[in-house]
C-alpha cells in the first residue's frame, strides 16, 4: 500500500510587537520551524488570515494548527 504524505502541523505565533512575550512566541515558533521540527511544520503570518486571500484564510482548515499567544487576549487562537 502506498504511503501517503503526512500532513504538516501549522504553527501560528501572535508575534505581538508591543510586548516581549510576543517576540518570544515568534522566536519559539521560528526555532521549531528551523531546528526542532523543520520537516513537519509550516507557518503563516497571523494578519494574512484577514488581509490575505481565501487560501490564506483556509490555512487552519488544512493543517492541524498550534497557536502560540503572548498574552491573555489570545489573538492567535481567537483569530484562527
Amino acid at each position: 500500500m502506498p504511503e501517503l504524505p503526512k500532513k504538516k502541523v501549522g504553527l501560528i505565533a501572535c508575534s505581538g510587537e508591543e510586548i516581549p512575550e510576543g517576540t518570544i512566541t515568534r522566536l519559539a515558533v521560528r526555532q521549531v520551524l528551523e531546528s526542532l521540527r523543520p520537516e513537519q511544520t509550516v507557518t503563516i503570518c497571523l494578519p494574512l488570515f484577514l488581509a490575505g486571500g481565501e487560501g490564506d484564510r483556509a490555512f487552519a482548515r488544512f493543517h492541524p494548527t498550534i497557536t502560540v499567544d503572548g498574552c491573555a487576549k489570545r489573538c492567535a487562537a481567537r483569530s484562527t
Binding site: S15, G16, S79
Partner: peptide
C-alpha cells in the same frame, strides 16, 4: 520591518510615536 519599527519608537522618536501591534487589530480589539 519589525526591527525598524523598534528603532523608531525606542531610539529615534520615543515620546512622539507609539507602536501598534497588528495582532490586536486583526482581532478587532
Amino acid at each position: 520591518a519589525r526591527e525598524g519599527a523598534y528603532v523608531v519608537t525606542e531610539e529615534l522618536c520615543p515620546g512622539r510615536t507609539q507602536l501598534m501591534p497588528l495582532a490586536l487589530l486583526v482581532l478587532g480589539d
